[in-house]
Amino acid sequence: MKTTPDAAPNMQDAKATGRDTRTAVLKRSIRTNVPLRKTFVQANAGGDSRHGPLKKFVTGRDLRGLKAYLLIVAACSNGDNGWSTTHDSMVWARMLDILETANDQSARTGAWRALIRLRDRHKLIDCRRSGTKITVTLLREDGTGKPYERPLGDTEEDRYLQIPATFWTTGRDEQLDLPGLAMFLVVAREKNWSPFPLEKAPEWYGWSADTHERGLNKLLALGLAERREKYITAPLAPAGFTKTYQYKRTAAVQPRKAKKTVAATQ
């Protein structure tokens, strides 16, 4: 009896995507939510400036670097390997979606350069190479170059926001441009239904009111933030009040509650 040979295996169909790689990294770190010190987004009041390290990514138009940094925090902040993680440079390239637009060697180089920027320009990580392997170690989120410690939230400098792992595993990160990702972190830093006035953006965060507005509109368009009107008494205004807007993250990107483990009954 004549048989039909099996179709030739297709390596391309089996190849992991960037999202596959990010998901695998998050599963290995065993995190439901990723902690990030609030000082990365905005410095605490009382200093010379309210600008946090996030400002440099926005004004430098470094979306790849910002995405890389957030992934490194997700991969390293459980502390199992001394706040470090090691991958082949090709895995780093795929994790950062560099392989989509570059050949293998260029992708390896692009991944290393992105990590070097985080080390030398931002002082947020340390990194080293051994052959094709790259090891990255977290430093403190405030850009001081100090060693990383897990934030506990018991002091003002140690307060942190949380990003759910599903932000990456469901592809929410892939939808955001640089203003959108920056404003996602800004909204996540504050309590639900906080105002983010456009005119305060240069003073509070270090970027323009236009960038601020575009980021907020991006979050609303993608269903990652909600907005409501708030009326404030203003005796000297013609109408006697002014209108402002308040924002909060939608349920899709709120921190997840850790699953409770149920003890086995005997």
Rank of each mutant, 00 (worst) to 15 (best):
P151Y: 03
T135W: 04
L118C: 08
F167S: 04
S77D: 15
H87L: 07
P151L: 07
R150L: 12
R117A: 07
G153F: 09
I125R: 08
K133N: 12
R121H: 10
D97Q: 14
T144W: 03
R108V: 14
P147G: 10
I134W: 01
I134N: 02
T109G: 06
W83E: 08
K133W: 05
R117I: 10
A111F: 04
I116W: 02
G82E: 09
L99P: 04
K146M: 10
R119M: 11
D154V: 08
L138C: 14
P151A: 04
W92A: 06
R119N: 11
I134A: 04
L115Y: 06
E157W: 00
I163L: 13
Q105F: 05
W112H: 06
L96A: 05
E156W: 02
A107M: 09
Q105C: 01
S89D: 09
T169W: 15
G153D: 04
Q105T: 06
R129I: 14
N81H: 10
Y160L: 12
Y148M: 11
E100C: 03
R150H: 15
R117W: 08
E157H: 03
N78Q: 15
H87G: 01
I134S: 00
N103L: 15
E156Q: 13
W112T: 10
M90R: 07
T137A: 01
K146L: 11
Y148F: 15
R128K: 12
W83D: 15
M95E: 01
M90T: 15
G145L: 07
G82Y: 15
T135Q: 05
G143I: 14
F167E: 07
I98L: 14
T166L: 11
R108F: 01
D154R: 06
R119Q: 15
A111D: 00
H87T: 13
V91H: 00
I98M: 00
